[in-house]
Design a protein around this nucleic acid. Structure first.
Lengths: 67, 67
DNA sequence: ATGTGACTGTTAGTCCGTC
DNA sequence: AGACGGACTAACAGTCACA
C-alpha cells in the first residue's frame, strides 16, 4: 500500500470523525482546500511539516497519520 | 520539539542500533550520504516517500520515525 | 463541497567537494 | 566517520478556474 494513499485515507477518516468538510478542515489547518483534496486522494507527496499541520487540528500526532 | 529534529534523532538512534555508519546506511536506503547527515541533524524537511525509504532498512515503520 | 489540470516560486534531493 | 558548503535538477507548496 502506497504511503501517500495511506496518509490520505487516514486524513479523510480523522477529518470525517471531526464532522468537517474539506473546506472547513482546510481553514483549521491553514492549508488550501484543493491541497487537502489532493492529499486525501494520495495525489501529493507532502513533507513532514505538512503532516504536522494536518495532524494538529485533527487532534492526532503526525505519527498517527502514517499508520 | 521540532518534528524535523525528532525525526533526525529517531533515525540516528535506529541507525546506531543497526551498527551502521551514515555512509553504510545511505547505501542501504539508497539515499545520498550528505542527505542522511542533514536529516539526522534536523536540517531538512523530507517528504513521506523519503521517510519510507529511511524506515525500510531500519526495520521500522514510517510512523515510528515520527514518534 | 470535491476533483482535477495547469501554473509559478520555492525547496527537496543529488552530487561535487573540504574540514 | 561525520559536519557542512556550493551548485544543480526534479519535485513540492501554494494557488486558480472550472467541472
Amino acid at each position: 500500500m502506497d504511503i501517500c494513499k495511506r496518509l490520505g485515507e487516514n486524513v479523510r477518516r480523522y477529518r470525517k470523525e471531526k464532522g468537517w468538510s474539506q473546506e472547513a478542515f482546510a481553514h483549521e489547518a491553514d492549508i488550501h482546500r484543493t491541497y487537502i483534496s489532493d492529499i486525501e486522494r494520495g495525489a501529493r507527496n507532502p513533507t513532514i511539516t505538512i503532516i504536522e499541520k494536518l495532524a494538529r487540528p485533527l487532534g492526532v500526532t503526525a505519527s498517527q497519520l502514517l499508520e
